[in-house]
Design a binder for these strands. Structure first.
Length: 816
RNA sequence: GCCCUCGUGGUGGAACGGCAGACACGCGAGCUUUAGGAGCUCGUGCCGAAAGGCGUAGAGGUUCAAAUCCUCUCGAGGGCACCA
């Protein structure tokens, strides 16, 4: 037998797999579909990162076992290449993103093939492909038409380095998730998706989906539900039109201790916008606070407004202050301050010499009723800011028309409008007068090649300088109109890719709506058969980004009757009943980063050791969900292992009729262990079990063909190429990856004799070999005859005997 | 500040409440004419010559029995963070 030439073997089988369509399921007729999905990569860096490979390999091993267990596994691959990450990379290397995309695509797909995963290549997709983003725009249109997209002016996050607005989810500790620059607040008009409408559903469904606990908790915190009450504080003898202040509190029971009110600068400003003639000092404070509203915690500041309100419980007059520690976007923008029960209020009270009252607590419900308040549930979650002032994304498929604005305003007014008039406009058009959706049949709105694609930084996308792009006709009235020039957030691209995959090569499907036929981006029958996804794997860093958006979009499309998944244990419309977050791969104790120069390039290692070795090494480091520490030295262990496997199959192929009992038992134990460990993603211990089995087999003079067959099958998910090669050398004509996964016989697993541990007062004193199933009576008799035990017991009297069958016996003696 | 997760040899990590350290890496000794990033055998938690003792961040507790369960402290990582 020749030596183990992994380079040649790996190439050979990768070609074979593709040509023979080994990993292509039958989408229309599959009886046993299993959708094994891994988050697709964004090709922004120099090439595939070993972290990507780690994640993909982990998902692949699971998929390969499922395939051998008789499932029709679908494991798609694609590129999330639209959006700011790829654009920033293009900017950095001074390339045009549209051209760079083609370069990255080629490179990534080549690398992704080299790692030996069972990808269904024929269903690959790229988010920047017009054939794909046509449908991303279609989703935007559906959201708009159904009142789930709206335009509003609001203080939003602005990254001055990326020169665009960002969603709250993309701001991490006050910094831009992409570039790390500090994010500032700017008052801008932007497009939002109404994710807050789904706050409760997104929260409640978490209980019924099987996800990594840490991710569920992160989502729960992000949604941030609090139950409390709205309570009104009247303003007596009010000189202005504001007659009362309503506050939100989670502690209505502390109302008797509320000794002052604090309103946010934003609320103060809106009062001034009415008829409040605020003192100069207040005006100054508010202006300053609004201009410089930092997220950082700092010393409390504030001013007295001169206004007094009445505490509805004590009937006492309390002062109203304005301070920037009260947020505008949460609750009513005003709070009742209870220094005795709230640290922040206490800090404020101390600083400004306000009274502190230690009033007793009341019953929550009673006090709410007494003062005429009402219960209120509040969420921390904000709407999803979806527009971006960048170039490399799907243009938002909307058009602004002055003529239609007036008509829509009339139609949306409460005055008498005929039903027909109202029907002329969808909800989005009524809520956003002047904005008209591009009709579905005119999609995609293609992203033009713009030479100067660099972000402008004036709150406008580069498309705003392309006249030929934005000048258009209103699809509604045919008049002169202007296209929206912002593009949508990358996270919209990735919010639905998994629905598209199974339908990439499917027949175009449509839905009957009231007055027309609506083309849809997925085949309904296939979608019902393959979705929801059976197992979704990805990084925990997407806990409140992708993983929240993707659920929202699926639930919304589902509620709007556009999408219909097949049955699952999860609530209807949940895309991922089971999600597992893989861990982070680090290098010698440190995070991999280009600045540290410790980024592992998988290509090099594949060249030196082979993809199979690298795959197994990555999986051997630690449990898949923990992550792992990549150390160069360690890979030799796996390299040796596979070399020894190769040798075993070269040298010990003699047929043996007499199967060694001990080996047979070991084989069945290994089948059980490997099967269970793959199921729970404990690949490290599965590999260890294979090593133990190999050690055993090497000790045998000869090994039966049946044993070797089992070994190869168990190895196949981890090292798919070498397993395939040895399988062929065994004379098989079809792929090992389509073979049946071995079963174990639980009767053959148990050893006939076991080591019984003998303890005296909980201390291990001896171990004796006894036959399995030995009774307590027999055990005591046997054990008490043991010399060591006698010694240990000495003269002490046995007070109690604890016997655990097939495991241990513990004598508890009187203390002497 | 609040919430979550985790602390085990020189290293990565094993361990249904029941023999702590599986499997590897590294290291040590030996074998093999052996220059290859080789292979094979044995050893390798700490103290001790041994018997034995001590050991899972630290301190308590529950239990016949604790790395595992409970309480507190310390440390690391992650999420939220002036959200009333």
């Amino acid at each position: 037998m020749p030596k183990y030439d992994f380079g040649k073997i790996e190439k050979k089988w990768q070609k074979y797999w593709r040509e023979n369509r080994i990993y292509e399921p039958d989408f229309n007729n599959s009886k046993n579909p299993f959708y094994n999905l891994m988050m697709f990569p964004y090709p922004s860096a120099e090439g595939l990162h070993v972290g990507n490979m780690y994640a993909f390999t982990g998902a692949d091993i699971y998929g390969r076992m499922k395939r051998m267990q008789g499932y029709d596994v679908f494991q798609p691959i694609g590129l999330d290449g639209f959006g700011i990450h790829s654009e920033n990379y293009a900017l950095k290397i001074k390339a045009h993103p549209m051209e760079q995309a083609k370069v990255s695509e080629k490179r990534f797909y080549k690398q992704l093939e080299m790692i030996g995963n069972g990808f269904a290549w024929e269903e690959k997709l790229e988010t920047y492909d017009p054939e794909y983003y046509k449908w991303t725009q279609w989703i935007f249109v559906q959201m708009f038409k159904r009142g789930l997209a709206y335009r509003a002016k609001a203080p939003v996050n602005w990254c001055s380095s990326c020169k665009t607005v960002l969603a709250d989810e993309q701001v991490v500790a006050g910094r831009c998730e992409r570039c790390g620059s500090f994010v500032e607040k700017r008052e801008l008009e932007q497009w939002f998706f109404r994710i807050t409408k789904y706050a409760e559903k997104l929260l409640k469904n978490l209980e019924k989906i099987d996800w990594s606990e840490r991710v569920k908790i992160a989502q729960k915190n992000w949604i941030g539900k609090s139950e409390g009450a709205l309570i009104k504080f009247p303003i007596p003898n009010s000189q202005i039109s504001i007659k009362e202040i309503e506050v939100f509190t989670t502690r209505p029971d502390t109302l008797y201790g509320a000794t002052f009110i604090v309103i946010s600068p934003e609320l103060a400003k809106s009062w001034m916008g009415n008829d409040w003639r605020a003192p100069g000092e207040v005006k100054k404070y508010v202006a300053k606070a609004l201009e410089n509203r930092s997220e950082e915690q700092k010393e409390k500041t504030g001013v007295f407004t001169g206004i007094y309100a009445i505490n509805p419980a004590t009937k006492e007059e309390i002062p109203v202050w304005v301070a920037d520690y009260v947020l505008a976007g949460y609750g009513t923008g005003a709070i009742m301050a209870v220094p005795a029960h709230d640290e922040r209020d206490m800090e404020f009270a101390k600083k400004f010499g306000l009274p502190v009252s230690n009033a007793p607590l009341e019953d929550k419900d009673k006090i709410i009723q007494k003062v005429g308040g009402r219960k209120k549930t509040q969420y921390r979650l904000r709407d999803w800011l979806i527009s971006r002032q960048r170039y490399w994304g799907p243009p938002i498929p909307l058009v602004f028309c002055e003529t239609c604005k007036k008509r829509a305003e009339i139609s949306s007014s409460k005055f008498i409008v005929s039903k027909q008039q109202r029907k002329d406009f969808n909800r989005g058009e009524l809520e956003n007068p002047g904005w008209v959706a591009v009709p579905e049949e005119n999609l995609p709105v293609e992203l033009p090649f713009v030479k100067n694609f660099q972000p402008k930084g004036k709150g406008e996308s580069p498309l705003a300088s392309d006249k030929s792009f934005y000048e258009t006709k209103c699809p509604k009235c045919g008049g002169k109109a202007r296209r929206e020039t912002d593009v949508s957030d990358t996270f919209l691209d990735s919010a639905w890719y998994y629905i598209r995959y199974p339908s990439v090569n499917a027949k175009q499907d449509s839905l009957e709506t009231r007055n027309s036929k609506l083309e849809i981006p997925w085949n309904r029958k296939i979608t019902r058969r393959w979705l929801p996804v059976d197992l979704y794997t990805g990084g925990a860093e997407h806990s409140v980004l992708h993983l929240l958006y993707v659920r929202f979009i699926a639930l919304a499309l589902h509620d709007e009757g556009l999408l219909d998944f097949g049955p699952s244990d999860a609530p209807k419309g949940e895309p991922f009943p089971k999600f597992r977050a893989h861990g982070l791969l680090i290098k010698e104790g440190a995070k991999m980063s280009k600045s540290k120069g410790n980024v592992v390039n998988p290509d090099e290692y594949i060249k030196r050791f082979g993809a199979d070795t690298l795959r197994m090494y990555l999986m051997f480091l630690a449990p898949f969900e923990y992550g792992g520490d990549f150390r160069d030295a360690g890979i030799l262990g796996i390299s040796r292992f596979l070399e020894r496997v190769w040798k075993l199959f070269s040298n010990k192929r003699q047929e043996t009729k007499n199967i060694d009992k001990g080996l047979e038992r070991k084989i069945h134990q290994t089948i059980k262990k490997v099967t269970e460990d793959i199921e729970s993603l404990h690949y490290n211990t599965a590999i260890s079990a294979l090593m133990i089995l190999l050690n055993e087999m090497e000790k045998q003079k000869s090994t039966s063909r049946a044993s070797l067959t089992v070994f190869l099958k168990l190895l196949a998910p981890f090292a798919p190429h070498i397993a395939e090669e040895l399988w062929e050398k065994f004379g098989n004509k079809s792929s090992i990856h389509k073979e049946k996964w071995p079963d174990y016989d639980s009767k053959l697993i148990n050893e006939e004799t076991i080591d019984l541990v003998i303890q005296v007062n909980g201390k291990h004193r001896a171990t004796i070999s006894v036959s399995r199933g030995l009774s307590e009576k027999e055990a005591v008799k046997l054990v008490l005859g043991d010399k060591k035990v006698k010694e240990a017991l000495g003269k002490a009297k046995i007070r109690k005997t604890v016997f655990v069958k097939n495991r241990l016996i513990n004598f508890v003696t009187d203390l002497t």
